[in-house]
Design a protein around this nucleic acid. Sequence first.
RNA 1: GGGCGAUUAGCUCAGCUGGCUAGAGCGCACGCUUCACACGCGUGAGGUCACAGGUUCGAGUCCUGUAUCGCCCACCA
Length: 1074
Amino acid sequence: MSDSTAASKNAADLPPKYVPADVEPAITQAWEQANAYAADASGGGDPFAICIPPPNVTAALHLGHALNNTLQDVLTRHARMAGKNAVWLPGTDHAGIATQSVVDKRLQATGQKALKEYKLDEAEGKGGRDAFIEKVQDWKDEYEARITQQLKDMGCSCDWERQAFTMDEPRAKAVREAFFQLFKDGLIYRGKRLVNWDPVTQTALADDEVEMEDIDGNFYYMKYPVCDASGGKTGDFATVATTRPETMLGDTAVAVNPDDKPRAQYIGQFVKLPIVDRVIPIIGDDYVVIPDEDSDDSKARMASGFLKVTPAHDPNDYDIGQRHDLPIINVMAPDASISITHGWPTEENPEANETLKPFVGLSREDARKVIVRWFKDNDLLAEVKPYRHAVGHSYRSHVPVEPYYSDQWYLKVTDDKLKGAALRAMDESQRQPSEDAAFNSNADTQATGLKFTPERYAKTFQTWHENIRDWCISRQLWWGHRIPVWSKSLQVSQSNAAEVFDEAGFYVIGLDHIFQHGEDWKETAITIVGPEGIVDYKQNGLALPAEPEQFTFFVCTTRDDMGKELEAAGFERDPDVLDTWFSSALWPMSTLGWPEKTPDLDLWNPTSVLCTAREIITLWVSRMVMFNLYFEGRLPFKDVFIHAMIQDGHGQKMSKSLGNGVDPVDIIHSHGSDAMRYTLTSMTTQTQDVRLPVDTIDPHSGITFTPKFITGPGGYKVAAPTQEHPPGSGKQMVSSYGLASGTAEPTEDMPAARNTSEKFDIGQRFATKLWNATRFALGNLADAKPDAVNVSMSVADRWILSRTVRAVEAADKHLAAYDFHNYANGLYQFVWNEVCDWYVEAVKPVIREPEGAKSRQVLAAVLDTSLRLLHPVMPFVTERLWSALSEVCPQRGVEGLDPAENELLVTAEWPTADRALIDRDAEERFGRIQGVVGMIREVRNGAKVSPKESLDFSVKVSDDVAATLREGLALMSAMTNTNIVAVGPDTEKPDNAAVVTAPLGEGYLHVEIDTAAESDRLTKRKEELEKSIKTLDGRLGNEKYTSKAPAHLVQQTRDQRAAAAAELERVEQQLSQL
RNA sequence: GGGCGAUUAGCUCAGCUGGCUAGAGCGCACGCUUCACACGCGUGAGGUCACAGGUUCGAGUCCUGUAUCGCCCACCA
């Protein structure tokens, strides 16, 4: 190793305490210098690849990300050590709407020119769009750098040379190409539909960007006068029930259920819509719920039987409107204020409607109040009932989403080539029985075997695809991939054909090659939309109408120069950008060079595993699967591992939007990176989310305390923005919530406070334990003479080697199953409870002696293996200790456990377990020693004998057993501070002695015992044994048990019964002798 | 409304296809500055496994129901 800081020269270089901050930076540097993470497709080994779920550049990472990335790093480091050609592809996501609105908010908050002003500039042709995007770009640069640093601080072994961003040029190229292909294949279409509109950010949202929240609202019962076709009132009323009175301005029908006897008679009549005086029909549609006061269905209880139909502002009403060919009247502007200029039919002449005028320009909230008031004043409000119901809110601006009728681009994910392929890709073993046609399709099944861990998430994936709807991919934003479509509308007829079309019937705009070579669709695709919809001009040419009709030409191209030509020809580029998830969906391909057929793509796609949280299965996993299958005919990854979510101390999800996130760097600061990684890994079980109570560190004093909590927006518990510690001291600080929510600004007197959590203590302690165990080993190995070969292994040596092999096997098994908890926990127990508590203690008496030669070898090998096994989860401390070990003891390993040496642990070989080292005899014998040692310690403690006081111990066993026990007795005596004074068949129990029993005999600890205490202890034990015997007898006395239960279990029960009876006898004997 | 998951020691969590005298870490009690480690060592106390039924020789583990909590999905009359 070339550096001097990371590598230790000898054991004395290891300070008594492990201080992560003193070690981590140098280790990071050593890895970087060695280029340890770089992957090359031409390198050997089986491919292993992980794509990072690219974090949004909206904000810094929190502990949820730390967990996500730690697990990926564990897998990657393991794969790398195991000799695979491993790559971990890093990157970030532009997160369109989220980033745009975060930046806009920040600009507003700091009094700078914000989105609104830039939009005005853009409208005036002053380039506001590009100027704003630059602002967002600055933000992105800042946070991308910060996120990258966080990942590096965590020790993430990404191949940083491959850092990607969903909006950089290679990814942009992939997006254009993908869009183009889908467009060309007819899977992207433009549709006028109801979308989820966010009136604040003024963009459409995908279904999954809408969050349902329960809202306390009202049911309003409004009376519409019934009339005839010409508007003549009958004096009767139809009372509609609605939660959204303001949309009544756009009503185009009233519906009743034809099976609703009392009301069906109204079908065919009309109502005169109040305020707007529109005469609209009463129609029959079985969607309408029939009122029933006694129903279980709350809707039936609340319903009036008359449903107002507003196709432009309610998805259900839209469907009804389609069924009955109703007009669609949009009554709102994009900001959701009441408007008569966004779709109101001119023949109604709304400008002249005096009654309507007061409502125009009102927000939908105000309009609701005013309209209700109008109905009340005009005696048309029948009733108002409180009603709690779910309302969709923008996940970004948190205002209710407005169903809004507008032009959008859709991706036809319902097509079998997308949806069907995704369903068929599921591993057969994880499919639910299904009626879905996709499973019966004859279509080629390109790839199969997509597997989820835990399995249950396969169901989420399947259900999502079975119910999938077309994906609205356009967003009215600036921050994103601009849609590569240019369009132009023009009036076309036979008379102007010569100006527009050439002889071949193709449209002429100076782009002859596009149209002349109509089948050469490599870079350009055209859709022509005429009055009757999409024109299949490729088959039939364009049938020109006699009278001029409107045709719109949509040209999709991946080439910028062609875009410019199109613009010169009067085409306009679509102003919208693509949904963020469109570029994310290409991630496993675009990070490997797609659309080029690169060696990387060949080797690493499909990637090995996707590691993510469950919330993203529908948004992201689904779309990656569909795209990768569609474009490359294979899966984006073979496995999907869904891990837990990190919750705060109140059981709330840790998230940026809640502001309760904890910066991993804070934890690294308080506990070290390895401690954080270890704790997070060991907390990862298959079922549970992780609850993590968070404390605050007072920056004035460095003292940790539990912050004061307040109830924040949305009813969540959050740390108060400013904290005082101790209360009343006047020493104030800004909490991480205060920072994240922008509700408090740190100052010199009121600095920002870091977070910590005692949950990470376990990792910190473990790192320290490992550190100290290594210090012990190095201290002894350093002095080791060249080993005398003729020393044989002790029972402890054989035992620990056996246990080490089992630890290797367990680690392999658990990692392969994504069982992170047991991987981490198993090694913790191995290192702490077996290596440190027993092996190191057992070896102490001989470790510096000539007869300890073999033990020194074993100790070095066991330590070597432990460091290798732990490296994926605790890379820093293990790497540091590795260099120290290599320095002191460059040659290590025993037969069967001798992986290749390597300068750096990060690229060292993963240990393989030679099962020949598994030694049942040693395990059994050492187990007995452990049992006896335990009993002696128990007696010593019970008798309150100081550990320093050496006690005599005599053993009664047969002579031949005594011979085999010699080694074990020596060990036992050393570990319990006892002198063995007699061993043999004639050993008598002294008067003052505690009896220790073991399978092969018994021992006497010569100690003045407290008769009363000993009597209590024995009596208690006696009762336990009696109870146990009773249970076992009950079992054995049950003929059904002895006949039905497996024989070995019955035998086991008999053995247990016998053992308990034997012990009971001894206990009773001891009691009688007290 | 549909689906998934959780409910085990004071706290945070393990307990795979039923065999447990139910485990771990923290916390707690007692004793130890034992020459790697007090971020330690040793010993111990602490649980009718949410509740009610059922299947079984046997249930923390399987089934049914109830309650509470969480998450995901769902077209806001």
